[in-house]
Amino acid sequence: MHTSFVVFNIIGLAIIVIAAFRIGVKVSKASKREAPEAQNKVTPEESFAKNNEKFKYGTFTDARDGETYHTVQIGNQVWMVENLRFKTEGSYAPGNEEENVKTYGRLYTWTAALNIPSEYTEQSPAKDLNMYHKIKEDNYQGIAPEGWHIPSLKEWEQLMDNLPAKSGGKELRSESAWLNPGTDSLGFFALPAGYRFDNGTYCQFGKRARFWCKDEYGKSNAYRLSLTINSMDIEGVYRSDAISVRCVKNV
């Protein structure tokens, strides 16, 4: 047997062993992340009670269905501390489980959030100029209760101005429900309700939060604020996706 052949086999075996070791490490890390002891054991109720003690939340009752929401002032804005729960066509329960609505609110398509016909899922509301200009006005109500409205891109950016530079959004994330707990230093109490695609698939419940903005982003998209366990951004997503709605008080 040639020496080169033996060396070749030894090198090949070494590569296989190293690859297997790396895969084993990845599997081990993944298992630890998914292990019960690695999960966030702070309940939303415990986290909320702590926040309420600290921020002295206000309250508001939606006259349409009697749902009461807590509120918080952040800078010059007043936000609902909870995701909207108002049930309407084009709204869904997070994770496709109605029991999640009480804590996580409902998920809405963009047209449901803006309370406009579903035909505007893939075309601009500019087809109806009166409606288009109404949406552009400040304090556009949409599906929000009376006295509240769907946030604009500018209002989301105003909220983010209260965060440190290069923030990953931990100041907005609740201390509960997230695998990587937030500090929730502003009392916003963002929970990971996930989202729903238009094909009926529910994704990222317990892992990601997305909130609608009233502003369009291209022909069939709209802006949204997204929070993950370590990041925050504002980008466009399909209007047919169903995501959370946070309401901001009229000024």
Rank of each mutant, 00 (worst) to 15 (best):
L114D: 05
P117G: 11
P117V: 12
S118P: 11
E119Q: 11
Y120Q: 05
T121P: 00
T121W: 10
E122V: 10
Q123D: 03
P125F: 06
A126E: 12
K127Y: 10
K127T: 11
M131Y: 08
M131S: 11
H133P: 00
K134D: 07
K136F: 06
N139I: 04
N139V: 08
N139T: 08
N139A: 09
Y140F: 15
I143H: 03
E146G: 11
G147W: 04
G147A: 12
W148L: 10
H149P: 12
I150N: 06
P151N: 09
S152H: 05
S152D: 11
K154F: 14
K154Y: 13
K154S: 15
E155N: 01
E157M: 09
M160T: 13
D161C: 02
L163R: 08
L163A: 15
P164W: 14
P164R: 08
A165G: 02
G168R: 13
E171G: 01
L172N: 04
L172I: 10
R173W: 08
R173A: 01
R173K: 13
S174Q: 00
E175F: 06
E175Y: 06
S176F: 02
A177F: 01
N180R: 15
P181F: 09
P181T: 05
G182L: 01
G182A: 04
T183M: 10
D184T: 00
D184F: 04
S185R: 07
F188P: 04
A190I: 03
P192Q: 06
P192W: 05
P192M: 09
A193H: 03
G194L: 00
G194V: 00
G194H: 00
Y195M: 14
Y195E: 02
R196D: 04
F197L: 14
D198K: 05
D198P: 05
N199Q: 06
G200N: 10
G200W: 02
G200A: 01
T201G: 11
Y202C: 12
C203T: 03
F205I: 08
G206P: 03
G206Q: 02
K207Y: 15
R208G: 05
R208K: 13
A209G: 07
A209L: 07
R210M: 04
F211A: 00
F211N: 00
